[in-house]
């Protein structure tokens, strides 16, 4: 048994298709009030590119490769940290007035059942 991963051909296409569908559905019912934090939140999520950058730098063997991979790690790290900081700051500000929120169906639609 081995745990290294090999993704080829159609398996890759299946992953891409399901992930795209997932992304579409996940965002599908977001209220407009959260569009800005959500854009910046998804911006943070693609910051996962930083792990690809670290992997690439660890496997770099020539100076040009090292230099370019260094910039990849630097940029990716900026993407992740900045995306998180900005999103968290914005989301911390959303507060309810504490009144019964039945008047405002959009804000509570995730809680309805």
């Amino acid at each position: 048994m081995h745990f290294s991963i090999a993704i080829t051909g159609f398996v890759a296409l299946y992953i891409f298709m399901l992930a795209a569908f997932g992304g579409w559905v996940i965002i599908g019912n977001v209220p407009a009030i959260l569009h800005t934090p959500l854009m910046s939140g998804s911006n943070f999520v693609h910051g996962i590119v930083v792990i690809g950058a670290i992997y690439t730098l660890l496997n770099a063997s020539t100076v040009p490769e090292q230099l370019i991979a260094c910039s990849a790690v630097l940029l990716g790290a900026g993407n992740v940290a900045g995306g998180y900081a900005v999103t968290d700051r914005m989301l911390a500000m959303f507060k309810s007035s504490g009144k019964q929120s039945a008047k405002h169906p959009r804000a509570v639609h995730a809680k309805k059942s």
């Binding site: 991963i5 993704i7 890759a12 992930a19 999520v45 693609h46 690809g52």
Partner: peptide, 14 residues
């Protein structure tokens, strides 16, 4: 790296 594939594609679609 499937984590990159999935996270990237989710953001792409979103």
């Amino acid at each position: 790296n499937p984590a990159l594939m999935i996270a990237g594609m989710v953001v792409g679609a979103a």
